[in-house]
Design a protein around this nucleic acid. Structure first.
Lengths: 147, 147
DNA sequence: GTAGATGCAAATAGTTTGCAGCAAT
DNA sequence: ATTGCTGCAAACTATTTGCATCTAC
């Protein structure tokens, strides 16, 4: 889900940190703000660049550590989307999959309950208990087809 | 698809190389043999280890270069399956997806035409022209659930 | 006050590349 | 003979980690 900007990320982060016995530091808040109030699916470097605009003292390692932390507490998730660096997005509980334009890197999110159901069926058929899954469709978006 | 061992990989490799104006070297044949006659979804290091048993002089870079080459001519494909190193498999034209056990790294392949159809529909809805896609289900296999 | 967090730099993992020599065509 | 291929080592990219210092609790 694309971040909307006018939301309760701060409460969520604070609650998650508290619940896990972690400290609410200025750096974590700054990184979380850049992440949740920003658009798209940034990689660590892009998020680091965003953060540095307002907080030049923050280190890259802290960005990596905070992104891992957000994933561990369930507020973020990541995928490489076919490229070398991981890209991150906010998790809002509602699972979705991705359409990725291989030319302009546009990422479109979609939800398809039928596919979700089929995935469960397939897992059951093979005796698996599912914990997560990932579906990515790669191609050209409307604009890039014209190029 | 799991490699079977008694097949025509050699012809396919030779034809692909010829078609692309590439040379048929002893190293490429050795690496292709280890790859196509071997089992499972090896990463580059594992394949390198296999190759070195019979051909100790082959370099790691050649394994990487050959794996990239096999992908470029359509005889192999890869995914990270949620881990750090890419894993490779033979492509046989029939698309399949993967169930991955996050505990023992077992990878089970499956085909589901309904999902394939739904993916095309979703792409069409969003105006995308698909070139490829990836679906991976992560969980615990039957044996690992007992552990 | 203390355990946890940070910033820096160094380390690591996976993969790619420059180059001189080698070999398929 | 030419051009591509190989092996080696060095370079590179993305990410993690050790450690001294700092800070939220």
């Amino acid at each position: 889900m694309t971040n909307t900007g006018q939301n309760n990320w701060a409460e969520n982060v604070e609650a998650a940190l508290r619940e896990h016995g972690l400290r609410l530091t200025a750096q974590r808040l700054a990184i979380a703000q850049a992440f949740f109030e920003g658009e798209g699916h940034p990689n660590a470097d892009e998020l680091y660049a965003r953060v540095k605009v307002r907080n030049p003292a923050i280190g890259q390692a802290t960005v990596y550590r905070t992104l891992r932390l957000l994933q561990e507490v369930g507020l973020a998730s990541s995928s490489t989307f076919g490229t070398s660096a991981s890209r991150f997005e906010a998790s809002d509980g509602e699972h979705h999959d991705h359409l990725v334009c291989t030319q302009c890197d546009l990422i479109v999110e979609f939800v398809n309950p039928t596919i979700e159901q089929l995935q469960d069926d397939i897992a059951a058929t093979h005796g698996f208990v599912l914990t997560s899954h990932r579906m990515e469709l790669y191609g050209l978006c409307t604009s890039c087809q014209k190029g």
